[in-house]
Design a protein around this nucleic acid. Sequence first.
DNA 1: CAATTATATAAAATCGTTTCAATAAACTCA
DNA 2: TGAGTTTATTGAAACGATTTTATATAATTG
Lengths: 365, 365
Amino acid sequence: MPYSKRREKTTITIRDVAEESGFSATTVSIVLNNAPLARYIPSPTKTKIQKAAKKLGYHPNIFAKSLRSKRNHTVGVMVFDVTDPYCTLILRGIENSLYQASYLPMLTDAHNERSRFERYLEMLLERRVEALIILANWLLIDINLLADLEKSEIPTVIIGRELESKSISSVIVDDEGGAYAALAHLHGLGHRKIAFVRGPKALMSSKKRWKGIQKFAQDTGLDLDPRLIVDLPDQLSPNLGVEDAYRMTEELLKRKRAFTALMAYDDMTALGAMRALTKAGVKVPEQCSVIGFDDVATAALFVPSLTTVRQPMEAMGAAAVNIILDGISAGAENREFAAVQKKLPSELVPRESTRAAAETKAQTA
Amino acid sequence: MPYSKRREKTTITIRDVAEESGFSATTVSIVLNNAPLARYIPSPTKTKIQKAAKKLGYHPNIFAKSLRSKRNHTVGVMVFDVTDPYCTLILRGIENSLYQASYLPMLTDAHNERSRFERYLEMLLERRVEALIILANWLLIDINLLADLEKSEIPTVIIGRELESKSISSVIVDDEGGAYAALAHLHGLGHRKIAFVRGPKALMSSKKRWKGIQKFAQDTGLDLDPRLIVDLPDQLSPNLGVEDAYRMTEELLKRKRAFTALMAYDDMTALGAMRALTKAGVKVPEQCSVIGFDDVATAALFVPSLTTVRQPMEAMGAAAVNIILDGISAGAENREFAAVQKKLPSELVPRESTRAAAETKAQTA
DNA sequence: CAATTATATAAAATCGTTTCAATAAACTCA
DNA sequence: TGAGTTTATTGAAACGATTTTATATAATTG
């Protein structure tokens, strides 16, 4: 006794449980995993085993488990910038659904660096994640990344970007409809001279939103004055484009072309625009209404709070999880699984930053 | 040929590499891991093996690897609310340092639910993360969580909360000094009637910051009018306390007690306060200066941009990672490792929301 | 020149599970 | 009754690496 057992047994294995309960490791495994064969095992046996496991504080070694069963209940989640408030709510949705399904997300943040993205992708694949969820942003424009993805056979879904790919699913919001509704909102408030800060041209969502705007203009005969339109650069600056929006709005004001409302590419753009307007002495919303897109968590906290088009971000996250979960079980059962493209509706959220147009055009900068 | 190989070999193992290169699995392992024994292996052998591995696209099975070596290069990172902008920058720091060390963070978000936190803690321990980094917030007040932690022998560090624990490290900011500096800033601008929206009493940082304020008041003879002091409730509402701050500031204004500056517990509190002030017709900073704490990413984007005390969040994340990395290598080498408590300095960031006090006290709500 | 020591490789043991294949008893049912 | 299921349990074989131990040759030493 004094000699042996100098170091107490720190890890207890399934065999310990077997010994304690008086059954074999096999039976213990079957019971504890509630494997198909478990239905042949009488309850008393089950309880005995469970009790033994609890008594010893048994935790199965997940590596051994995964090694054998080739499953690890982990999915990779890749974002380009956790700092981006647009991400966080989607992450919430993802995390929530995953949690319910007892999956653990493995989150990586690429810091807007392509190389990091690639490295992380590799790391995740090495770790044999069972599926992959990617939150797209402008960086994902280059599609060559996806080559790697396609050949890795795991279920993959991209949120925020539509793909032609046969093997990669996607979840997007109805950008066109959302933009249409936003413009309709401004129009309904009596605004006719409306300025636009469009998103980077390279972005699909940018194009889609503009399409919605054009559609509305066409439907109602609204005039889209090219002198009231500016574009964000393709290469956004660090601060999520707020700075860029600020500059572009200043540019807009410099043109001395009256407008009573401004529609921004997204909430952060709207924030930048509001800062520029305020700085220039234009009161929001008294002299100029502003509308955004996304409904980022802080949009409601802006001063004034921002009218915007809400993307159902949590729902998008949840949808993505559902897709990959389907994909995973399809894979497990050796069924075929076709990529799905899901488009979710957006919703207008009126707040303080928009109001009825004043009769007098108070606005000339 | 037509019969066999119906299903192509999808996973290639170390033995395949061994065969391809003409050496044994052992040698391959030694070479590919650059194990100590690798110094006895001549370069031509090494290159041959490496070439073979690359040719076959060999990726070691991480489960087998971890099962044997008991290491997995993963650390658990636990936050209570990813949505909280305070978190994201720290996460950045953590992620960055971890990335450099080739560790993969396993991030969990407790959604401010204790039960989730516990469940995730369990999941992480089951996955045998090599260390744990926890971003504290008010929810971590109850310490019983830590019991589990202490007995799990892995290196653990808590960011944002000081602990008496012998086995858990912590990284905090100098709250007292920061608050002192903030108040000094206001004082230097000529403010004498200063209102305070203090943080929840239960929070240690709240206490520390107040201590700094008291210290400054004592040092300079500044009067702290109790009628200009309000406290955030212990149980914060979902929106990060902005709503609460809004309400408390309204309360403050209702008291009809003049003040020319307001010092908030943190940036989000400051935001709520600014909203309330603006709503009440008090201009910031013309009629009332506002100062926050943290320097959350969006603080610079508020209108007006917020003067605040910066927590070196990325540095804090990095510090935490350094600590656990030390802990890990200590563990690997069977050395003793003592918990460390690290306190980082804060830094005043003057922006638009504070300015010199007007001679006339323009402020009575 | 025998005895070490360093170099180079491999066979076998091990990590802790799950799963396959086998066994034996207890039930059906014609 | 005996052939066929169903029920209850298990030993042994994976899973794919790393690590330990062993072996064979070459180089160095006393």
